[in-house]
Design a protein around this nucleic acid. Sequence first.
DNA 1: AAAAAATGAATGAACGTTCATTCATTTTTT
DNA 2: AAAAAATGAATGAACGTTCATTCATTTTTT
Lengths: 187, 187
Amino acid sequence: MNTKEAILKATLRLVNEYGFYHLNMKQLAAEAGISVGTIYLYFNSKEKLINELYKNIIRDFNAIVLKGYEEGRAFKQNFFEMMRNAIDHYIQNPDRFSFIEQYTYSPFLFKETKEENLAILEPIEKIIKEAKKENQVKDLPETLLIALSYGPIVGMMKLFIVGKTDLKKKMQKELLLEACWQSVSIQ
Amino acid sequence: MNTKEAILKATLRLVNEYGFYHLNMKQLAAEAGISVGTIYLYFNSKEKLINELYKNIIRDFNAIVLKGYEEGRAFKQNFFEMMRNAIDHYIQNPDRFSFIEQYTYSPFLFKETKEENLAILEPIEKIIKEAKKENQVKDLPETLLIALSYGPIVGMMKLFIVGKTDLKKKMQKELLLEACWQSVSIQ
DNA sequence: AAAAAATGAATGAACGTTCATTCATTTTTT
DNA sequence: AAAAAATGAATGAACGTTCATTCATTTTTT
């Protein structure tokens, strides 16, 4: 692992544990196994660092979700694959999920980063739009269809993180996916 | 408005605009129209202040949602009333919604406050449990039913806040409510 | 009824401490 | 030997918190 990655990884861990307010550079350097000065060779400031981390996490997430998409394949299959990828990625990286939830709507993100922000719903928006054009989905406003597909997943992840549900069980995950599908698809 | 309320109100506004990190006591005092020292007559510390604000907001929210509940009334009617109250309250106080979303899972909250925390889903949990006992709701895990009821509302609120949808329109709101109902009720 | 005394909420300057950032020096790589 | 990368002590601005002091209001005394 190179130094830059080590810094980002340490930031993710500490910021989730203590919050941006209590995260200090000395502690961060220790966690990453480098010295304070080194951080500044890679990132201009503490805030820039958070923004870079955010962008990386969103980029990775979108790339992984998009792997579930295949041009020309049935909407249903694309929907399931993409959503499954999203859930799996979150389950394996709950810290990334928490981080996204915490910072997507926070005032820390620069405008420049915020543009990348809405992009967290971009892959979902994409297939919903396509499906709507072809009437493969309920006749509801696009935004509502997005909220119905993604909202319950976020909700379950939050319950998962506080230990109220075990999304790692195959059954739970499949029930969730099926339920999301039911609420957008034509019966 | 008494001094304590003025401080809480100013905190909500500034913390949403700048975040806890950039919120400083001098600025806060100015916003509340008092002087720094006065804040400490009402709250022991900056963190205590945030925790008090959080508790107040959750308490108000739950009380308002619970106003939609009537002992002995049909589940469907309770569900609609409670959810409508939640949505209305959020629409009228988007800053409260943002604050809850931002801090519910943040490391700033004291353990003591976190206990009040899960309480944000308490009223919903309550009616879902009741309905499940009487088979008035789909045969799915309780947590999933909660995520299906509340998740899309959170999702829509987020889109509302960034201006992607107009939840103030009666139609939008009713479609959202109906969709949430569809995903938990027996067809 | 007037004067004196007591109260305590509010003030804001002062203070200690934290902590992001810098940069001269050292270590490592080429 | 030169260049590049890393170190970490030093800096100083920022800021949360304290606390002596003020003063409008209330209570007690005359």
